[in-house]
């Protein structure tokens, strides 16, 4: 702690930079955040960055190069708490859908036989495949409410808790007409909550961008979807878009 202010570092591996951008997007709270916390490193927002000891490291993006593996390990060594910040860090992101063989083939399709001299690419993986992760904030991108809630709890020294329910729960609170009744494949029952059911609120089925919910009731949810006429294959294929490397576990639950 520095003058009682926690030292925070925000790091970006491979992703769309949406989670870091979301912090910059806390326009009205940004000055407060920079006042309440000692932001040691945040490459998107400042150039006087220091790589030292940290209380909390927010890591966005998945690991896709060898350089990132060593960067991530260095962050872990310096930080008391490491947070997987966003879907890419937590589940590997949409880029983690390919298995090793598919990844090799597709890399070749995009870059031909190009040899890279600056760093070696590796198949995309979430950060917990390389280091211990203390907290997960999924979402593509994370929600502002979830982030600010998380941050204020951290700043006060009260670790935040998980969101244990699927999107459907909030969707019901929001009194939406269930899209499944209209024959649309909505992943709300199988997706972790945190977005406020924003897509169903707009008549758009959930694509599962928070990743799979850790929920004992998954079987019942799956049966519900099957009852509505969707095949397990179809559901898995749709879930695979955002579940990353956590799809296998999620499917085991089913």
């Amino acid at each position: 702690m520095n003058n009682g202010k926690p030292k925070i570092g925000i790091y970006e591996l491979t992703g769309c930079a949406g989670d870091a951008l979301l912090i910059v997007d806390c326009e009205m709270e940004l000055l407060d955040i920079f006042t309440a916390a000692d932001i040691q490193s945040f490459a998107m927002a400042k150039s006087d960055n220091i790589d030292g000891e940290l209380d909390v490291a927010l890591v966005e993006g998945s690991v896709t190069t060898e350089k990132e593996i060593s960067e991530l390990k260095d962050i872990r060594e310096r930080a008391k708490i490491v947070v997987a910040f966003g879907n890419c860090a937590a589940h590997g992101g949409i880029q983690a859908r390919f298995d090793d063989k598919e990844w090799q083939e597709n890399l070749k399709k995009v870059y031909g036989n190009q040899k890279f001299t600056h760093t070696k690419p590796v198949r995309s993986k979430p950060i917990d495949e390389f280091v211990k992760v203390d907290f997960y904030l999924p979402g593509c991108p994370v929600s502002k409410e979830q982030f600010l809630h998380f941050l204020t709890r951290m700043l006060k020294g009260n670790p935040p808790e998980h969101y244990p329910t699927p999107v459907c729960v909030t969707c019901k609170y929001n009194e939406n007409d269930c899209l499944l009744n209209n024959g649309k494949l909505c992943l709300g029952p199988l997706t972790a909550d945190g977005c406020g059911s924003v897509c169903p609120n707009h008549n758009i089925p959930c694509f599962g961008c928070w990743g799979p919910v850790e929920n004992a009731n998954a079987i019942a949810e799956l049966h519900l979807l099957k009852e509505k006429g969707f095949s397990v294959e179809e559901i898995k294929k749709r879930m695979a878009n955002f579940a990353g490397t956590k799809l296998a576990d999620a499917i085991k639950q089913l």
């Binding site: 970006e12 591996l13 491979t14 992703g15 993006g61 998945s62 690991v63 896709t64 190069t65 350089k67 990132e68 992101g93 949409i94 880029q95 859908r97 390919f98 990844w103 597709n106 890399l107 399709k109 995009v110 870059y111 600056h118 760093t119 690419p121 590796v122 995309s124 694509f207 961008c209 749709r238 878009n241």
Partner: peptide
């Protein structure tokens, strides 16, 4: 330095609606 995400390849084999989201 950011690694390759192969997004174009990720859209192949998906429906047009999924790609609008991916």
């Amino acid at each position: 330095f950011e690694g390759p995400r192969l997004i174009e390849r990720l859209t192949v084999g998906r429906t047009p609606e999924e790609d609008v989201s991916l």
